[in-house]
């Protein structure tokens, strides 16, 4: 089932090693600047490293699919007796794994850096609450929901890109024009998704509130932080979630998955 994942990850192994070594070296260099540079500058540079690394991962994720659509490896992948769904799910899993591995290292070094800055320079992100306490104060429902949302948003983004690539490849035979066409299709698909989601949430405004902090945590937050204590503050009342909007997002993901899988299995001419 997941045989392509193995080869896709193996293929980017060297890039991964280079990327992770670079993240480690740059963050170690930042650690040597503690007490020499202002803590805000060190954190800013750490965020720049994270941002650049994430951009590179997104490029990898897109290339993972575009390579097998436009280059010679298409003959390797699409002559195998595997369905479009199988190929696509393997690409999505590989992309998420690439993202998670890099995110793990970025998060690890950011946490180390923040902790070191806290110990040496008393850096607290402008909040008088430690990172550990903040995490323990958040409700498990909110953590689960956050992971769910991040996954859904990223999978939705990947599928929008992959569907645009597949449509661009099928509709436009010229490679350069195809890539421009892909970009235009991507923009159009994004606009359609946003418009439909907004329209549906306006027609069906029903939703529910999801509490961010448990009672004790929320109290700590309002006691320690600078947040304005009123009932409209989402840190206290929770975040409002629209059921129809979430449902439409999920429907879009399913539709884009099946559309892309169908195109690469039945419409792609090499």
């Amino acid at each position: 089932m997941f045989k392509f994942v193995k080869y896709d990850l193996e293929g980017c192994f060297k890039d991964f090693v280079i990327m992770i070594c670079t993240i480690i070296i740059l963050n170690l260099l930042l650690l040597t600047r503690i007490n020499l540079w202002d803590s805000n500058i060190i954190i800013f540079l750490n965020l720049v490293i994270s941002f650049v690394a994430e951009i590179i991962v997104i490029v990898w994720n897109i290339k993972l699919f575009s390579r097998d659509i436009y280059e010679g490896s298409a003959y390797l992948v699409f002559t195998t007796p595997k369905s479009g769904k199988n190929i696509l799910i393997n690409k999505i899993i590989t992309a998420i794994l690439q993202c998670l591995i890099v995110l793990f290292f970025l998060f690890l070094f950011t946490a180390i850096l923040v902790e070191m800055l806290n110990l040496t320079q008393g850096f607290t992100f402008g909040l008088k609450i430690t990172f550990g306490r903040l995490l323990s104060a958040v409700t498990p429902q909110f953590i689960a929901y956050s992971i769910f949302v991040v996954l859904i948003v990223y999978i939705s983004f990947l599928l929008t890109v992959y569907l645009s690539l597949a449509l661009g490849r099928v509709a436009i035979k010229n490679r350069k024009l195809g890539k421009l066409g892909t970009f235009i299709i991507f923009v159009v698909l994004c606009i359609i998704q946003v418009k439909v989601e907004n329209a549906v949430s306006n027609v069906f405004p029903q939703g529910f509130m999801l509490k961010i902090f448990n009672n004790e945590g929320g109290q700590s937050w309002t006691n320690f932080g600078n947040a304005i204590v009123n009932t409209n503050n989402p840190f206290i009342s929770g975040v409002s979630l629209n059921i129809a909007e979430i449902s439409v997002s999920l429907i879009f993901i399913i539709a884009m998955f099946y559309a892309t899988a169908y195109i690469i299995e039945n419409k792609l001419d090499l």
Binding site: Y7, E10, G11, K14, G72, S73, A74, Y75, L76
Partner: peptide, 8 residues
């Protein structure tokens, strides 16, 4: 044509 991944 060549169709194997170059890293292989």
């Amino acid at each position: 044509r060549d169709y194997l991944y170059k890293w292989m």
